[in-house]
Amino acid sequence: MPGKVRKTSGNKLTAMMIVHNEADRYLKDVLEHLTAFVDQIVILDDASTDDTPEICASYQKVILCRNEESLFFKHEARLRAQLWELMAAAEPDWILTVDADEIFEDRMQNEVKCLINQCDFDGVEFRMFDFWKSTTHYRVDGLWNPWPRFSLLLARYFPEIEYTWPDRSFHSGRWPMFYRGRGIISFQSDIRVKHYGWARGEEHKEKYRAYKAADPEGKYSSREHLESVLAPQNTVKLEEWIEIKTPPF
């Protein structure tokens, strides 16, 4: 594991994100939110046909690149690799990978510097809460349960590594292989992430169809989990989101 890039101060944090037709969803909230605590936001627009690129470009910290043809459901790994190259060109010390519908608790703004300006760990994992048909309740049955599940969203960037991606057209993951498997040394944070990707019930059927079409045989993700998107309401377990007080110091 390379060590010379670790430093306890002055680390530059770059967020990276793939967007596609996000203008009427949560994009502005996410960009406002990120602007408060990251140094740069590298965005790869996957051929949006709405105002997404214009919205992105209106934020000072954004570095935007646009694709003419959408790749997400054709070969996601290629798209991820492309975003990775753009991010690398911005020369970050740390990378935050987010989607255009994910928002950290406010504590992140106060604590992110402490999470990155240290040499003891190279990644930070967070619990992600999938809001379900509302912005007040999240889903907890089956694989949706956020409590036992931590996801790597923040990690140190090592410029000398030759990064590779799995040869997967769909569900290729946000991180290159170096960050997976044996993995990097990571810290599990209690700062929660709100995921609004499923907050609009009217989008569920369309999203289900798109995911099923991209992976009809359940090759890249759990079929059971995908089917649970359309599960009868009485089998879906929800918990109410409870705001946690931000420590006063």
Binding site: I242, E243, I244, K245
Partner: peptide, 23 residues
Amino acid sequence: VRWSAKHPNIYYYWKAPQDMPHV
């Protein structure tokens, strides 16, 4: 999390070891 949310003057969280001196 639920218990602390019910009490205005009780907090629950954890921090990275580097942040504990500040706490």
